[in-house]
Design a protein around this nucleic acid. Structure first.
Length: 136
DNA sequence: GCCAACGTTGGC
DNA sequence: GCCAACGTTGGC
């Protein structure tokens, strides 16, 4: 089982919309590396939901409920989506600022490859972030 | 609004 | 196959 992080600009698709939809297909990925990550996602994998631009914080956890298939928003067969279901809202959002300031998280993809919109998160980083949001 | 860090495109 | 020019993302 793997752990991931996806980014969304809140004005395009926010966590609140995600909460309302419960399940959504993750469309709009137009970058090969991000696409390849989508293809690697397995049912049951956990995915952190990050607000880019506005907020700049991890707000919730989703779960992969359907593995990759053709992106319904384009004819182009290159692009795929996965279905994500809301799992939990974090008790407390974890901001980019906090992540950057935390020595335990300095190798996280979010900082190392800031432009990538779908990335893998190491298990220990994932757990660490969940703990952070629970403890305060 | 600026800019760094990439990714993509197209000429050669 | 290289690289310059251009486009995009996302933090500040």
């Amino acid at each position: 089982m793997k752990y991931w992080l996806v980014k969304s600009e809140p004005f395009k698709y926010s966590w609140n919309m995600m909460l309302k939809d419960k399940v959504t297909y993750w469309d709009g990925v137009r970058n090969y590396q991000a696409r390849n990550n989508l293809k690697l996602m397995k049912k049951g994998d956990l995915v952190l939901f990050y607000h880019s631009n506005e907020g700049k914080e991890i707000v919730g956890i989703t779960k992969v409920v359907k593995e990759y298939y053709q992106d319904p928003t384009t004819e182009d067969e290159k692009w795929v989506v996965v279905d994500l279901r809301v799992d939990k809202t974090l008790k407390r959002p974890i901001s980019l600022k906090e992540i950057k300031g935390d020595n335990n998280l300095k190798d996280i993809g979010l900082i190392r490859q800031s432009r990538l919109s779908v990335m893998e998160i190491k298990k220990e980083h994932f757990k660490y972030i969940i703990n952070l949001s629970n403890e305060k």
